[in-house]
Design a protein around this nucleic acid. Structure first.
Length: 449
RNA sequence: GCCGAUUUAGCUUAGCUGGUGGAGCGUGGGACUGUUAAUCCCAAGGUCGUGGGUUCGAGCCCCACAAUCGGCGCCA
């Protein structure tokens, strides 16, 4: 049963002249009454297979003719170098086995027309139609989606590699929680044996509890936000890469944020050059993101630039996406924004002792209109200050009791960040929408399929 | 929460001042010896999102509802 020959290897010339058995799915099929051309697909690529009636016989020829798109088949034959075939190689078939036939009453519903979706301005929005979102389970096997899933896999691998190489310990937090990290309005409520629990928005508070034990820790886990956001940057369930570090300043934490993002870009170039090219992503752009240091800018500076451009923004306003977009449109690299006003950020951000109007935090803004991909900073670490900030905000203490308690026993300066993995993959792949890079996207009005 | 748009065959769509809904892809049948999401011929497939209204007559006009998409706020 084990599959030993991969279409990608055949196209790379590893099996020229050999007789091989190819297992895969029919991508396209065409032909005459004497020969069939079947484009076979597997997870590594496509190849044209030729079935000649006088070679394979009447019965096999009929079987091949009747096999509809997405039928699974095993084709045995000889690998020929042939420039008439896309990819330069071709399988001349001598035996056909249909494994999973497709019923003509229910043919594979996704065709070329279904894939060509455009938004209101006429820009391509791959996978954006209601039909393709309803048929996501079948859309996954189309080439663009397969490519995105491979890029995603490499990004996840790169994050693990980066943190492990930097001696971080992978650490898991619960997904059922009692309290919020951000403002309380964005939590999903879950019935919990007569009580109400919530789906976690972030690993952070539980990571801070483990910080005195592990000192350097990270995770990649789903986070949940009950935001009715209808944008190409939001999911209600997204994959969050977070790190927490003892004895660290805002600058040191930012250095790791830059490090992991550049490592992801570098890894995609090394592992997925073919895939990036296949979706027309400019490799020089990715190389630039991998090779250059990311500039830093203080919040005040950003506000000045925006005011200089005539944008209506006052000191103390948080910078929303419309402002980020104007700010980043001239950027050709991701930029860190630091030192936001205290009034714009929640209680756990540490106040800057040099000027108490500010907190020691940072956001990393991606260029090309992709927006914020990292948010992080130093944490408020003394018990007394935590209590004061909670009370100031009117946030109840009770759900955070464990968190407050950690400060009573040897609090130290520390901090961390959260990175939106889907957002990073979306940006680096040049996706038109974040849902392009996650297999089953969860948005405010879709939980199926 | 706010703003905008869409809904016609399995899919993508055309549809005139309101007067018996056309096509391409796919599917079925047929033709064809090298095709490149082949080509040629034929066929089946539609209570035009739901409900109401106006009208002699509604896919088209009006109202309500629903679903979906796009954008904003919020954030990763």
């Amino acid at each position: 049963m084990t599959k030993t020959v991969w279409i990608g290897d055949v196209q790379d010339g590893l099996h020229d002249g050999q007789t091989v058995e190819l297992k895969g799915w029919i991508k396209r099929t065409r032909g005459s009454n004497k020969m069939r051309f079947v484009v076979l697909r597997d997870s590594t690529g496509d190849i044209q297979c030729v079935g000649k009636k006088d070679v394979i016989g009447e019965e096999s020829f009929e079987a091949l003719k009747e096999a509809l798109i997405e039928s699974s088949v095993i084709l045995t034959g000889t690998v020929n170098v042939d420039e008439r075939s896309e990819g330069g190689h071709e399988l001349v078939v001598n035996a056909v086995e249909i494994v999973g036939a497709v019923d003509p009453e229910r043919p594979f519903p996704i065709n070329k027309e279904a894939l060509d979706v455009v938004d209101e301005e006429g820009n391509p929005m791959p996978g954006g139609s209601e039909f393709l979102l309803e048929h996501r389970h079948l859309y996954l096997r189309t080439s663009r989606m397969t490519t995105m899933l491979k890029l995603r896999s490499s990004a996840f691998g790169a994050i693990h590699n980066y943190f492990r190489n930097e001696d971080f310990i992978e650490y898991q937090a619960p997904n059922f929680v009692a309290g919020a990290v951000e403002g309380g309005s964005t939590l999903f409520e879950v019935p919990y044996f007569g009580r109400t629990a919530y789906l976690t928005q972030s690993w952070q508070l539980y990571a801070e509890a483990a910080m005195p034990a592990l000192e350097r820790l990270y995770t990649i886990a789903p986070s949940f936000r009950a935001e009715k956001s209808r944008t190409r940057r939001h999911l209600t369930e997204f994959w969050h890469a977070e790190m927490e570090m003892a004895w660290a300043s805002n600058d040191e934490i930012m250095a790791h944020g830059e490090g992991v993002v550049r490592h992801i870009a570098r890894t995609l170039l090394e592992e997925r050059e073919t895939e990036l090219s296949s979706i027309n992503r400019d490799l020089d752009l990715i190389a630039r993101y991998a090779d250059n240091p990311y500039p830093h800018m203080r919040y005040d500076e950003a506000v000045e630039i925006l005011q200089g451009k005539g944008v209506e923004v006052e000191w103390g306003d948080d910078l929303d996406y419309s402002k980020e977009k104007i700010l980043t449109q001239d950027f050709d690299l991701p930029h860190f924004l630091t030192h936001y006003p205290k009034i714009a950020k929640p209680f756990y951000h540490r106040v800057d002792t040099e000027d108490e109007k500010y907190v020691l935090c940072h956001d990393l803004l991606a260029p090309e209109g992709y927006g914020e991909i990292i948010g992080g900073g130093e944490r408020t670490w003394s018990e007394e200050e935590i209590l004061r900030r909670l009370d100031e905000e009117g946030t109840p203490r009770e759900p955070y009791q464990f968190y407050i308690d950690t400060r009573a026993y040897g609090g130290v300066p520390h901090g961390g960040f959260g990175l939106g993995v889907d957002r990073v993959v979306s940006w680096l792949s040049g996706a038109s929408h974040i849902r392009e890079v996650i297999p089953f996207p969860r948005t405010s009005n879709r939980v199926t399929p």
